[in-house]
Design a protein around this nucleic acid. Structure first.
Lengths: 241, 241
DNA sequence: GCAAAAGTGTTCCGGATACACCCATGG
DNA sequence: CCATGGGTGTATCCGGAACACTTTTGC
């Protein structure tokens, strides 16, 4: 394998996680101490990214990073945009930080996002932290824009691809699913109409199991069948002019 | 300006053009003669692409290429995907051709598409040619896949962004617009329902002008108002779960 | 005056919305 | 037995789909 890196190309991974508090983004602390360990001159947050190895595809490179930070494999991802402005890094902080690492400032980056239930990730150390999407801190580089673009793309794609299920465990209740939509779009949905609509989809399949303990009345569990989805999807192609 | 190139990054431009025959793609002939000028050992077609200059953004690089082949500026474009498989070029032809040009085989490419009325382009020489989308020839590299991806992305985005108007001249008839949809989606649309729907959009604005000569009864001309569109668009955000 | 494309209304159906109460369980 | 979230049905409305004939001009 060719372990050399393409020294001007990186991959960035925006990780979305959902729990009962809402939609989160996983960020990594960016710090730089110059003279005094207690007073970092840089202390903000970034999306995790890294260089692409010459022998790897972009997808493989993204998955390597994702596995590094979450421990997970085989999670769906979406490539949503490539950023190639040679002046992407323009703030003093960005240049300082990048130089301190001995890397280049002229990099382009291809950005991906991942979606998962927040609880499935065990963070390695406190350099990583989940932030509610509505309460993001100051981000380094152009990462505010990247996260925003990821979110916009997510909202779009979620209406035409079954990404929503990536945010949920394999078995979920209809109320879980409704909450996922509500949290991501920041809207309220009528419960009865929602159930009708979801149950009309053949690819949301009921089980005989019930989730107990959490609430008072046990709730029925469903799962998403990708097989059925793949069969059905071509037909209801979105042509509504 | 830094005229050095990023020697492992290119930009590819898929150019879609519409005329009364349907949706076309602009391709460029790829030939290689080795021993005998009359018997090229490579003679197929590719999408136009080129290296990215270190001082340019990806967008600027794409526009340079686009201007080079069409003579046009300020045409909307869509970045739809970045291809980063180090083994993108695997066929003998591809490797032969690339080596003959003294360039690298390990390149990634960020791909854009452009949409315009076919007639606005004056082709410089017969190395370039328009092909009906349904009758594409054999393409070099992974360009069949790229063109296909571009088309899929186009069909998707066209439903949620006003790209359709890029295919038409500034002033167009409702029947032109209908034909554009029909050609791109390869469907038939009811004329009466279509008119009702389009006329309900405030951003399709009627003029007092009529197009004469082409057909028997002169037809009313409309234009697309981006100003009105931008005002209105936020409101009807696609949330239909 | 006729050929050819432009333009126009009404009915019907299905999916979306609005809305309020009973159910099953754990404590 | 009561608190809590789970689960259910109906009436209305609106946009989409189906469908055929008249109008205006060039020749």
């Amino acid at each position: 394998m060719d372990f050399r890196k393409r020294d001007n190309v990186t991959v960035d991974c925006v990780v979305f996680g959902l729990d009962s508090n809402g939609l989160h983004v996983l960020l990594r602390n960016r710090t730089l101490n110059m003279y005094d360990d207690d007073y970092p001159i840089i202390d903000d947050w970034i999306v995790t990214g890294y260089y692409v190895f010459k022998s790897k595809t972009l997808e493989e490179s993204a998955d390597l990073i994702f596995k590094e930070i979450t421990g997970l494999s085989n999670v769906d991802k979406m490539q949503f945009k490539t950023y190639g402005n040679p002046n992407r890094m323009k703030s003093d902080k960005d240049i300082l930080w990048v130089r301190s690492r001995g890397v280049k400032t002229q990099t382009m980056t291809t950005a991906y996002y991942y979606a998962l239930p927040l609880g499935t990730v065990k963070l390695k150390h406190d350099g990583f932290k989940w932030f509610l999407y509505g309460e993001l801190p100051e981000l380094g580089f152009d990462h505010s824009k990247i996260v925003e673009d990821a979110y916009e793309d997510l909202k779009r794609k979620i209406m035409i691809e079954p990404i929503i299920f990536d945010f949920l465990p394999p078995k979920f209740t209809l109320n879980d699913l409704q909450f996922a939509y509500e949290a991501i779009f920041n809207i309220e949905i009528d419960n009865r109409n929602f159930r009708k609509k979801v149950l009309s989809k053949s690819y949301v399949v009921g089980t005989n199991e019930k989730r107990k303990g959490v609430s008072k009345k046990p709730s029925k569990l469903y799962f998403f069948s990708r097989e059925i989805y793949d069969e059905v999807k071509g037909k209801d192609y979105l042509v509504s002019i």
